[in-house]
Simulated scan of single mutants.
Amino acid sequence: MVRLFGPLVGLFFAIALLWSFGNGAYTAIKEPAAETAEHAFHLLPKDIKFASDGAFGKFDKAQLQRGFQVYKEVCSTCHSLKHVAFRDLAALGYSEAEVKAIAKQWGTKQPTFDVKTGERAERDNIPQDYFPTVYYAGQGVPPDLSLITKARHDGGAYVASLLTGYADQAGYKNAKGEELLVKFPDAKTPDGLYFNPYFANLNLSMPAPIAGDGQVTYSDGTKATVDQMATDVSAFLIWTAEPKLDKRKQTGWAVLGFLLVATVLAYLAKKNVWANKH
């Protein structure tokens, strides 16, 4: 009896699953979901190329230093970088003395706690320290940027697009020429938020951090346009998310080369071993 009951139960659940799937597909075809403002006006990231892209790509240290400068002067007041240590900056080409100076002069100090007195204090950062957490007093909690390019689809391109994507919602049109507030009159950006079509729901609480050309003065003389600064800081955040990317690619090619040689040797060995077996 039990042997008969088991297959029947399984058959029942299989039929129920197929019916549910079929009913859902039929409903989706006959009654498609209403188009939303996010669906009609949300933009995919721009096609932005980075030096580290592709199997042969490698970081451009000059660009990474410029990106770090943008992070330091523009982003660090709100966004933390808690998974990166000051000593890691040596990989960008900074000398030991420069790393020590950057750590010591960093705006946010390291919190300390005296167990004996119970007092809290602060001390200067040293190269071994990780970038201290930024305590933001405004509304919402700005995300930590250490891994942001790994946590967002299209990574660096998304970050750069977002930074340069702020627009005036009034009169904004999509690729079809449809005006947002004409098609969706209730889609107005709430007070305290800012319209950006590259953001998932079109509105975010962060005002445009890169307000205009020349906001940062690059030490290497590169012209600091909005697009340049956005691309540079995005490249820097690609590095913070995967600082060993260059070495991983080098190791990968070495491994592939070894496997190729090993495969050829194994084939030749097989031919030699089995040469007189016919």
Rank of each mutant, 00 (worst) to 15 (best):
A211T: 14
Y136H: 11
D213F: 11
D129C: 12
V182G: 06
A37N: 03
D246E: 09
E122P: 02
Q250L: 11
G24W: 15
D191N: 14
W19Q: 07
P197A: 03
G118D: 00
V182F: 09
Q65G: 01
Q69W: 08
G156H: 06
I48N: 09
L256C: 04
D168A: 05
A187G: 10
R248D: 06
L18K: 04
G156Y: 06
A91V: 02
L43D: 01
A170Q: 07
A51V: 00
I48D: 09
E35A: 12
D47G: 13
G93V: 07
H79L: 10
A33K: 15
A14E: 10
K270C: 00
P197T: 02
N174L: 08
F113M: 07
F86E: 11
L8D: 01
T149R: 05
V255P: 03
Y267C: 00
I148S: 04
L181P: 04
V134R: 15
P209Q: 00
A224Y: 14
L162W: 10
G10S: 03
L17K: 10
R123T: 01
T149G: 12
N174S: 07
E119P: 02
K173H: 02
A269E: 12
M206R: 01
Y158H: 14
N272V: 07
L92N: 08
Y71N: 06
V9E: 02
F13G: 10
F184N: 04
Q63A: 12
V70M: 14
K30W: 06
T263N: 08
A275F: 02
F131H: 04
E119F: 04
K116H: 02
L145A: 02
G214N: 13
